[in-house]
Each structure stands twice: as structure tokens, then as C-alpha cells.
Simulated scan of single mutants.
Amino acid sequence: MQATRIHHVAIIGSNYENSKRFYVEVLGFSIIKETFRAARNSYKLDLRVGSFDQIELFSFPHPPKRADSPEACGLRHLAFAVDNLDKAASHLQSQGVQVEDIRIDKITGKRFTFFKDPDGLPLEMYEN
């Protein structure tokens, strides 16, 4: 098998409307398709990130809590590339999102910072 790229990342939110607002209005991802699945009492929102990448945002009644440590086994965090880290961080802060101090990656010399989605999922912005 030779994968050519990541097709999508799936995220489950505890409150669909809060998560939808955050990923669409705050982060600016565009909606590809929104589907309500009545049999599961669940929404699936396909979002476009950049030109090719995609997030599937799900809602389920009473999802279990996520492990609260980013060092727990499993997905550690999701990182988004940005051209201007200062501008992106300022935008998030203007929307009431708490952003950590900007740091320098000691391996690449690039700047990055972390923030969280409405459910505490750790997200990163990494400057191109």
C-alpha cells in the first residue's frame, strides 16, 4: 500500500452546534456537506481545510469523554499549517479562544502554538 495523502480526520464533538460554529466560523473551514443521520440521531459535517484536506465532524448522543492527556496513547493532536502565525493567533484570541504562547520548534526552527476546540481537543498552528 502506498498512501498518497491523508483523506480526512474525524472529530466527535459533545455539542454539535458549538463544534460546528467553532470549526466553521472561528477556524474558517468551509462546509462540503452536512448530513443528519436519523437512525443514529447524529450529524456528520464534512469540512474543507485548505485546498485538499478534509475534517469529518460528528455528533453522537452521549459520546464517551476523551483521554485528557495529550501524552495518552492515540492521536496526540491535530496541526494546521498557517502562513502568518501572529495573525492566526490574534484572530483566535479575538474569538475568545485561549492560545498558548508561541514557541520555536527546536528541530525545524519553525514557530508554533497550541489551542483547544470546544471539547478540549488539542489543536496546533504551525507556521509555514
Rank of each mutant, 00 (worst) to 15 (best):
S59W: 05
I104S: 06
L27P: 03
N15L: 12
L123V: 12
R103G: 10
T4R: 11
A67W: 02
Q98S: 13
H7D: 15
F29R: 11
L47S: 02
D101T: 08
H62G: 06
F22V: 02
A81Q: 05
E124F: 07
I102F: 00
I32G: 06
Y43M: 03
Q95Y: 07
D101L: 07
D83V: 02
A38D: 14
L27D: 03
F58H: 09
N18S: 14
E56N: 13
V24M: 12
K110I: 03
I102C: 00
A10T: 15
E34M: 09
D68N: 08
L92P: 06
G50T: 05
S59F: 01
A3Q: 04
A39M: 04
Q54T: 10
T113P: 06
R48F: 05
F60N: 11
V99L: 06
Q95T: 01
L27F: 05
A10I: 06
N15T: 12
E17G: 00
A10H: 08
S90G: 07
V49L: 03
F58Y: 15
P63A: 04
S14E: 12
I11F: 05
E17F: 04
D68V: 11
G13Q: 09
R76V: 04
I11C: 11
S51N: 15
F36H: 12
P63G: 10
E56A: 12
Y43H: 14
F36R: 10
S69R: 11
V49K: 04
E34G: 08
L78E: 03
E100C: 09
R111V: 11
R5E: 11
F29E: 05
A39F: 03
G74W: 05
N41E: 15
F60M: 11
P64T: 08
V97C: 08
K116W: 04
G50W: 00
L92R: 14
P61W: 08
F80K: 02
S94R: 06
P122W: 14
A79N: 01
R103K: 15
A67G: 09
E124M: 12
G74T: 12
S14P: 05
I11G: 06
R48Y: 05
